[in-house]
Structure formats: C-alpha cells, structure tokens
Lab assay of single mutants.
Amino acid sequence: MASQGTKRSYEQMETDGERQNATEIRASVGKMIGGIGRFYIQMCTELKLSDYEGRLIQNSLTIERMVLSAFDERRNKYLEEHPSAGKDPKKTGGPIYRRVNGKWMRELILYDKEEIRRIWRQANNGDDATAGLTHMMIWHSNLNDATYQRTRALVRTGMDPRMCSLMQGSTLPRRSGAAGAAVKGVGTMVMELVRMIKRGINDRNFWRGENGRKTRIAYERMCNILKGKFQTAAQKAMMDQVRESRNPGNAEFEDLTFLARSALILRGSVAHKSCLPACVYGPAVASGYDFEREGYSLVGIDPFRLLQNSQVYSLIRPNENPAHKSQLVWMACHSAAFEDLRVLSFIKGTKVLPRGKLSTRGVQIASNENMETMESSTLELRSRYWAIRTRSGGNTNQQRASAGQISIQPTFSVQRNLPFDRTTIMAAFNGNTEGRTSDMRTEIIRMMESARPEDVSFQGRGVFELSDEKAASPIVPSFDMSNEGSYFFGDNAEEYDN
C-alpha cells in the first residue's frame, strides 16, 4: 500500500469516517454492505422474486439502478423543472426478469421514488447511507470498465484509444464523492478537466460571474484530485501550473494530454476495490451473516471469500459463452479491467482472455432483445487465490505491452514486471518541450526514458491461498515475461453508450 500519510484510507472515504482504527473501519464497511443486503432482500420480497430470480444479476442491476435514481437529487430536480413526455419524475423502474413456464419473461416495473427511498433508509437504520449508494455506483463503473473500451470518449477529448488503461471510473457520476474520486484513473480526471476547458473556450461566460466562481472551485478541486494521483514531483508541479492558470485554454489542454500520456509509464495511484452486485450481499445477509459484527474490507480476502460461497446467475444470449460472461463479471467484481492478464489468470486459476476474444456482450439486456431465446446460467466467480488490492500504480518500471492497449494499471499487489510499449508511448511525445512547463516536461520525458521494462514492481508481494486469511504465506508467482498482458488488445469491444 502506498503510505497513507495525511490521506484517509478508502474504507474511511467509503464510510465518510473520520480517523478510525482498522477494526472500526471493518465494522463501518460491514455496516454499509449489510445495509445493501437488507435493502436487496426487501426489494425481492416487494417484487415477489423467487430465490433464483433474486440471484439473477440482471435483476440486481435494475434494483441497484432504481435506488441510485431515487437518490439522484440533481436529476430529480431537473426532471421536475423540465417535464418530458412519458417520463414521470417521481417514478423509477426498469426490467425485471421472471421464469414463467420454463421461459424467461421481461416485466417492466415502476415504483415511486419516495417508496424506494423509504425501503433503502429502513434497511440502513434510517440513514441515507450515501456510502452504500456510492458502492453500487463503483460496481456499475467497474462493470462498464470491463465491458467497454471507451474509444470515442478518448478520441473526443484528444487522447489515444490505446490509453484505455487510464480510464478507470470514466462512467462514474460526478456525485460519487471521495470514494469515487479515489477509483478514477488519470485519464478519467484528464477527460473531465478537458471537457471543462473546452467549454470555457467555447463559452465566454463559463468562468464568469457567480456560476463561474463555482465552476472555478470545481476545476481547482479536480486538479488537486489529479495532482494527488501522480507520484513524481515534476508531474505534480505541472498540475500546479494547470490549476493556477488564470484562464484555462489550449496550453492547459496540451499540458493535460501530455500528463495523461506520461501516466502510461509514470503511473498514478488509483484505488481498486472489489464492489459486488447487491444480489451477492442480499443472500449472505439472508443466511444470517452479520457483516457489521464480522467486519468487512473491500481490499482484502473478504470479497473473494464471499464470491467463493455465492451463487449468481445471468441471462445468456443464444451465441454467448457462459464462461466468457463469467470472466467479464469476475473482472468487474475485482475492479480488474486494466490489470495484467498474466496476473489475473494466476489468481483466477483459469486463463483470462483479452476482451476481443470473449464471445459475450454486456450483462444488460436491451429492451428490444428477444426473450424467447434467452437461457440462463451460473456465473463462475470463484478464484484459485486471493491478493491484496493496490492503491498505487506500482513502481515506475515497465515491460512490453500489446498493440491495442499500451500499458496497464495494476489492481493487485503482486510481484511482476509491468508491461508497456515504450516505443509507441515515446513516439507520441513530439519533443515539444517549450513553453512555461518546459523544464517539467524535459524531466518527465527523462524519467520515462530511463524506466526499464525488466524491473520488478511490488517486490516480494504474492497471492494467498483462500485458507490464508491473515495473509501469512505469500506465494510469489513467476510470469512468462514475453507473454501478452493487455485486456483490450487489438480490440473490438462495443462502445459504451450512456
């Protein structure tokens, strides 16, 4: 783990906690998980779902989305002020799938948001429990990260689609708070800032007046979040320049895209947490497990152990491969979309394939898809080993990566060399080191050039047997250095459309 220093740990961010010791953190995270579980059980009762239907990941996603929508204050306010045809701002819903006479049927349900809020609060001892809501947002974000390569979004903001390893959390809503900021990748933060800068260039009043003052505060806050992700002084200094700019424009845009590229080699610290679907927490609570009393951590053995003992089902389209669908969801559960496939294969105990080789589309089923041909199958979400999630980018030494994705962002704290394609990355730096950030740029390029592919990161860190909950005997895996390590390699994943 990167030293926490003055930073709060993510469990504290996750639970809005002030400084807590490890036991208190485990208890408050457990409380959050228990609340999600209780809410899910109650919703299944309301909807009269069978046990099997309640364990269907598509039903879980609909129920999670309903509660997130019920608590989305800004959108609710907007919907009330701008009524649109056929949208009731006070209601929320989605597809629920039921097994009827041996076939899967889709039923569109509609609930009062007020009623959903009441059920959620009741499951969370009367609190709004925003930490639990954020947790579900991060699960949705991790699922998107594993399912889609955001080529269009990258290109629109002047970045290269091969930089997708920097895009963790790119679909997280803005209201996801400190826990959300911690899991956002460098590219995601750059993209958010670039969008602001572009608006400022096109709209003279963007930075002016009372609204402009708020915009400015948001801009500086985002700059500080991004600065905190960088691990070298030169990158941090460049972020200070971007933040202090009187009138952010093209120079800042250039600096930010430069920094994003540099992060492929001088990786930023991005938190990883295993956020599971509500249909995993519900049955665990129903079986009598007391998360608050037992304590829970999002970055240790607990999620692995929970998945070892969970039964989750998914709808499967006619030509999809259930094992591939399982891999997709497994990666999402562990926030591992940008991790090295060699490491993932070792931990999972079966070969993890790149996205383009998977015969599976996303987990969600569109409303126009034919239910007649839908089957369902068990998702295999178990693992051979477990490993500690990392909050750091690993040290800054790398190795060759593949054509589709030119770097990785480690999820697990496991000893290995970190793949990246130096030639491709360095070719993108057209040696432009003039301007006010020239000395920093020169320094950053120097550090990137001296990074050695064969150097090892996370020295001495290994994986653990599932029986080793105290992480007492690390097993340090050895990897084939020459092997392909990137998930979005030469990829044809669908595009994420909101």
Rank of each mutant, 00 (worst) to 15 (best):
K7T: 05
R8K: 01
E18K: 06
N21E: 00
A22K: 06
A22E: 03
S28N: 13
V29Q: 08
M32K: 11
R38L: 09
L61C: 04
D72E: 13
R74P: 01
E81N: 01
H82T: 15
G86K: 06
G93Y: 07
G94W: 07
W104L: 13
Y111T: 08
T130Q: 15
A131W: 09
G132E: 03
M137L: 15
I138E: 06
W139Y: 13
S141M: 09
R152E: 01
L154M: 08
R156H: 07
R156A: 05
M167T: 09
T171R: 02
G177C: 07
G177D: 06
G185Y: 07
G187W: 07
E192I: 05
L193Y: 04
W207D: 03
R208H: 03
N211H: 06
A218M: 12
K227S: 14
K229G: 05
T232H: 11
M238L: 14
D240R: 01
P248L: 09
D255W: 04
R267K: 11
H272P: 08
S274M: 06
A278P: 01
C279G: 11
V280R: 00
G282C: 09
V285W: 09
Y289G: 07
G295N: 09
G295D: 06
Y296C: 13
S297C: 09
S297E: 02
F304A: 12
N319L: 15
A323G: 15
L328E: 02
M331L: 15
H334T: 14
S335D: 00
E339P: 01
L341P: 09
V343R: 07
I347K: 02
G356Y: 12
S367E: 09
L381T: 15
R391C: 06
Q398V: 08
A401I: 15
A401D: 02
G404N: 14
S407I: 08
P410R: 04
V414W: 04
P419F: 04
A428M: 15
F429M: 12
G431H: 03
E434H: 15
R436C: 01
S438D: 03
D439E: 14
A451H: 10
V463P: 00
E469H: 08
K470M: 13
K470G: 05
I475D: 02
F488Y: 12
N492A: 06
E495K: 12
